[in-house]
Structures are given as C-alpha cells and as structure tokens.
Design a protein around this nucleic acid. Sequence first.
DNA 1: CTGGAGATACTCT
DNA 2: GAGTATCTCCAGG
Length: 213
Amino acid sequence: MIATPDRTPLPRTFFDRPVLDVAQDLLGRLLVRTTPDGPITLRLTEVEAYDGPNDPGSHAYRGPTARNGVMFGPPGHVYVYFTYGMWHCMNLVCGPDGTASAVLLRAGEIVEGAESARKRRLSARNDKELAKGPARLATALDVDRALDGTDACATGDTPLRILAGTPVPADQVRNGPRTGVSGDGGVHPWRYWVADDPTVSPYRAHVPRRRRS
DNA sequence: CTGGAGATACTCT
DNA sequence: GAGTATCTCCAGG
C-alpha cells in the first residue's frame, strides 16, 4: 500500500544537520515551485552533498564570493548558481549559519504541473526526462538566480517550498561517486539516489572540456 | 541505441 | 582556463 505524501513543510531543523544525513533524507521529499501558471511539484530522486570548506568539489572551498554567499548563510535556503554560460542548478543549504555545506538537487519526478514544465523543456522526449539532471530540474521548475537565497522553509507566500513527502526507506537508497566533479572532490561517494528510479540521471565521470579550436 | 565532439558564453582563479 | 551541464549532430553497432 502506498502512503499519502505528507504535505507538511520540512522544519529548518531538518537542514541544520550534517550534510550527508540531510542528503539521504531528502530523497522522496517534495519541492513545490509556485508560478503564475500554478504549482509545480517535484519528488526528489537524486541529490549530491557538498561539504563546504572541507570539500575541494564545493563552490565554497575557496571561501565566500558574490556568487556563493547564500551557502554561508542559514540552513533551509536555496543556493542557485549559473554554470557553463547557459544553465542554472539549485542547492539546499545545510548546517548551521556560518558553515557552507549544501545539497545539489540532481533529479526528480514531476508529480504535479508537468504541463508547465514541458513548455520549458522542449527537448525532453518523455516526462521522465523533464527533471533528469540538475540543470534540467532547474529549468523544469523555472528556477534561476532570481530565486537565489529563497527560504524553502518559510511559511506562507513563497515561490519555493519543501514538504515532507514520503521519505525513501534506507534499503532503497543507493550512493556512489559524485557526477562530473573534478580533482580530489570526485572521490567522495556523496551522490544519493532512489534505487531503480527511471528519473535518475546517468552517471558521468568528470571529463575536462577540450580547448576550443 | 550508444557515445563522442563541438557549441554555449557566466563566474572565479 | 576550467567549471556541480546539456544540446544537436554524427559515426558506429
């Protein structure tokens, strides 16, 4: 029997924990994006942990900048960055205020508002691909730098909220190396996903891009 | 169907 | 110059 997803907001204390604990616990949770078109709801199926200043793979590794400032703030807020000159990716900030760990949201299943997501994801060949990959996820949910710093735990009128949903049982959680992370940061098995879920993105090892001719 | 090459063009070192 | 990525095009099974 399938439990009805819990629509209760996740409390800020959920994010004020070690980032690896939060990352695993986020699988199966619901992210609700409120747009003028109506809500889009995503069930998280794949995430990656980034452990702030201790982690060579993290944007926070070399300290605060104009881009990553939100990572150093309080937990439960959204860190959105722009990458490769084209794409946005979103993270949820973890740990106490002043630390800089975060969880990158890599993939999920659109459970509400697929029609809206399809308008921005014209290259998706089916609904499993709407949010299969971190930049695809952000595009499907219409997330960009304007939402950087949004409090996902706030009650009331917010563009982005995270709800309890249905946590994934521990025996259904898989983990492995992080995707596309360069250098020593790639060795950590800090990518977590839901076993056998068709919306999880394929693993790709980091490959340095060839220089333009 | 799978996988690689090239393009994209912002942010930080 | 390299990066928490994705798209289209094309060669090869």
